[in-house]
Simulated assay, not measured.
Amino acid sequence: MASRNFGRVAEIMTANMKFMLDKYTMEGSVPFDNDALPNESELRLWNLAQTTINNIKHNAVIMVNAGYSGDIGLILHGRISSVRTKWEGVDKITTINVLDSEDLSKREVTEIAFAKGTLASAIIKQMAGYIGLPVAQMTLNQDYRYQDGYTAKGKVTDIITEVCKDCGTSCFINQSKLYVRNLRSGADGVFALSPDTGLIGSPEYFEDNGIQGFKIQAQLQRRLTTASVINLTCREWSGKLHVRSGSHRFSNTGDFITEVEAIM
């Protein structure tokens, strides 16, 4: 275990309330990936007062910071999709599901006709506006021009995915922001991962439709998310990898880890 990762810290914040790992029994699972469908996280808190539960509202903004003493950061920013509470023996457990999307009610459009010659970037920006997502990055391989115009109809995430495909570019939602870019491009910071910096066990090699990579487990690392760059150093392999999916998991005494699939 890397000595620098000492003192677990996690905090859940919503409606001017803050739930700290050292004061509440809680756990969470926060997934991330490289498609335009919002990810759903699950947070669980034990034995909250009923008045507190009543203030955790559907569609309210919720954020989670996590890390270690002196080094914490945001791992989740989204809106609450459901809240439910049930008893398990003597414990009252409140489960909060969080969708990485700003407004679930605006995820479909009836029909929008774009004029001849409209650029893909304009369509993507307008569609992102319908689901309330700021565009954090947009680097298109080709800003495709629709010479005959374009008709947007149906699920907004499907429309964005289709337009990005025409541009030969990936897109994904992360922490309530839209990213339009390839995983292997961009000015992402490089995180050096080794047994000294939190690597757990041996990375597992995989090959998927010609894409090679490793499944990696590490102590919870808030810097790792979709499109993060890992400079991996271990007995099995050393080199640069690009994260395409994974999850953060935290709890008081159980898992406090980040798992990723990273490609070469």
Rank of each mutant, 00 (worst) to 15 (best):
R84P: 00
A122F: 06
S245Y: 02
A113Q: 13
L178K: 02
D143N: 10
A187P: 00
H248S: 06
V64G: 01
K86S: 14
H77S: 13
E27N: 15
D35L: 12
G70D: 03
V9N: 05
M63P: 00
G129C: 05
S228M: 02
E207P: 00
S29Q: 14
E259W: 03
N47C: 11
F206Q: 04
M264H: 10
R145I: 15
V163H: 02
E111W: 02
N97P: 03
G186W: 08
A192M: 09
A192Y: 12
R107S: 04
S121E: 11
M63G: 03
K165H: 11
R244E: 11
Y205D: 09
V156W: 06
P195G: 04
S81K: 13
E11L: 07
G201Y: 08
F6A: 13
L43I: 15
V180N: 01
F206L: 09
R84K: 13
D71F: 11
L74F: 05
I12M: 05
G254P: 03
R84D: 13
D143L: 06
D71E: 11
K106E: 14
Y150I: 02
V135G: 01
V30K: 05
E42C: 02
T161S: 14
Q147M: 08
G89P: 05
M13D: 02
L74E: 12
G73F: 01
G78N: 00
C164H: 01
T226F: 01
A120E: 02
Y150C: 06
Y68K: 06
I160L: 06
P134C: 03
R184Q: 12
G254E: 14
A66M: 07
Y68A: 03
Y130G: 04
V90W: 06
P134F: 07
L178F: 09
N59H: 10
S29G: 06
E111Y: 01
F19Y: 14
F19M: 14
D35T: 08
K125N: 08
D208S: 12
Y205N: 06
S3R: 11
E162T: 08
V109R: 15
N209G: 12
M1V: 13
V163G: 02
E204V: 14
H58N: 09
Q147G: 07
E207V: 07
T25E: 15
K155L: 12
L74N: 10
I75S: 00
V229C: 04
N252L: 11
T25L: 15
G117C: 05
E11P: 02
S3P: 04
Q221F: 01
S69P: 00
Q175L: 11
